[in-house]
């Protein structure tokens, strides 16, 4: 094992992460194609949803310079990646399942336009409740934070989810449940992230 190389040390994304990962947010236009927070095209299969929320620090102050990436399965519960060998499910060519969003510099709100993912087979064949993986980076975050977003209208599936059940402190599980609401006929899931303090979001070492 002595030959095993060490993973390169992580460093903060810093305050100017937008330049590299979301130049339009930094205030300029450079690339022809940009990666963004809209995961769907008109061809994508599945229920349209909007994920929306804020990120707060340990003092309750909005973190307005955060960048969040999401990674999720499609409506069938299949990841668009060769390691997903689940049978009987197909990749949706109109859905990669990945996006990145920045919090607004003024109101601190981030959002994703996506679809609700299906159930994915977990370890030992146990189904995992529909969920979206989130990765959070910002100035002051030395190693990107991983969490998962689950859905408030999936009570039964959530109750059996192997990852939620791994969280010993039941009271903390609710920090991972996005709340469904409807606004102007659109389905919104509200997901606020608390980096520290009262109601601190559960983060994972994956």
């Amino acid at each position: 094992m002595n030959d095993l190389l060490a993973e390169t040390a992580s460093q903060t994304a810093g305050p100017y992460v937008h330049i590299g990962l979301a130049p339009n947010q930094a205030g300029f236009d450079i690339f022809e194609k940009n990666f963004g927070n809209v995961l769907v095209t008109p061809q994508t299969k599945g229920e349209r949803i909007r994920i929306e929320g804020t990120v707060m620090d340990g003092s309750g102050t909005l973190v307005r310079d955060v960048l969040i990436e999401c990674w999720q399965a499609n409506a069938d519960g299949k990841y668009n990646h060769p390691a997903d060998r689940q049978s009987g499910k197909s990749v949706d060519p109109a859905f990669r399942g990945w996006g990145r969003a920045c919090s607004d510099f003024d109101n601190g709100i981030y959002s994703f336009e996506t679809i609700k993912p299906g159930v994915v087979q977990g370890r030992k064949g146990r189904p995992m409740a529909p969920h979206i993986c989130l990765w959070i980076v910002a100035r002051g975050i030395n190693l990107g934070l991983h969490t998962r977003l689950y859905f408030s209208d999936e009570t039964d599936a959530n109750a059996k989810d192997p990852v939620l059940n791994l969280i010993e402190w039941e009271v903390r599980r609710k920090t991972l449940i996005a709340q469904r609401e409807t606004r102007d006929g659109k389905v919104i899931y509200r997901f606020d992230i608390r980096l520290q303090g009262e109601g601190e979001t559960v983060f994972f070492d994956i």
Binding site: W71, D84, G140, F203
Partner: peptide
């Protein structure tokens, strides 16, 4: 980092498909 660091331990997960896949 003082106010932007979680105070609770990270929950360690055995990897599932959600962790071993990634965008291409």
């Amino acid at each position: 980092s003082i106010l932007r660091s979680p105070r609770n331990a990270l929950i360690s997960l055995q990897q599932s498909l959600s962790e071993v896949t990634a965008p291409v």
